[in-house]
């Protein structure tokens, strides 16, 4: 086991930790930081339940080493709501029945967050394409597409700028 020191910003909070070099990012997030909203579904970069934003870009944290996040900024599902106020994407998933069992939801919301910032006017087909690296076994996806479409109409661009700024580690 080789131990390394990393410094990462998670949800705008700085963490300095000593970790085993083989530790996966998802285990660092879940076990070391106790942020269990990010899930593991397939271990092989297929299902996307472990999707988080790394410097603003979506990564599947089950196949990224925690070391690779050194000096970078991570946003997880827990970093989206402002206190008791839910993020518009979270609200839209509630409103449009975008989840049933809820296990894939964190990953879906993170990928949606990335998509909406990149393409606020994404069509249904573009949304489907964007979430095709994230598996849902319950909904058949149409209500997830509904949710993301609704969220994109309700998100205020300026508000999102703050999160991006944090992710850049400014």
């Amino acid at each position: 086991m080789s131990v390394n020191k990393i410094k990462v910003t998670v949800n705008n909070k700085v963490f300095e930790e000593e970790i085993d070099s083989r530790l996966l990012l998802v285990d660092f997030i879940r076990e070391n930081l106790g942020l269990t909203g990010t899930h593991v579904g397939c271990d092989t970069t297929n299902c996307g339940a472990c999707t988080v934003l790394l410097d603003g870009k979506p990564v599947k944290s089950c196949t990224v080493f925690a070391l690779q996040a050194n000096g970078k900024s991570i946003t997880t599902i827990e970093g989206l709501s402002h206190g008791k106020e839910m993020h518009p994407i979270q609200k839209a998933f509630l409103d449009k029945n975008g989840l049933q069992c809820g296990y894939c939801t964190a990953g879906m919301i993170m990928i949606a967050h990335w998509l909406i910032r990149k393409n606020p006017e994404a069509t249904r087909d573009e949304i489907r394409e964007a979430i095709s690296g994230n598996l849902c076994r319950c909904t058949g996806y149409d209500s997830i597409v509904d949710s993301i479409q609704e969220a994109s109409q309700n998100m205020i661009p300026e508000e999102e700028e703050d999160i991006t700024a944090g992710q850049r580690g400014r």
Binding site: M86, G102, T105
Partner: peptide, 18 residues
């Protein structure tokens, strides 16, 4: 049981979270 509001915010309690 976690409420749907908790789950959507990443506050669910699945077995691997125990």
């Amino acid at each position: 049981m976690s409420t749907i509001e908790e789950i959507v915010q990443g506050k669910g309690k699945f077995v691997d979270d125990i």
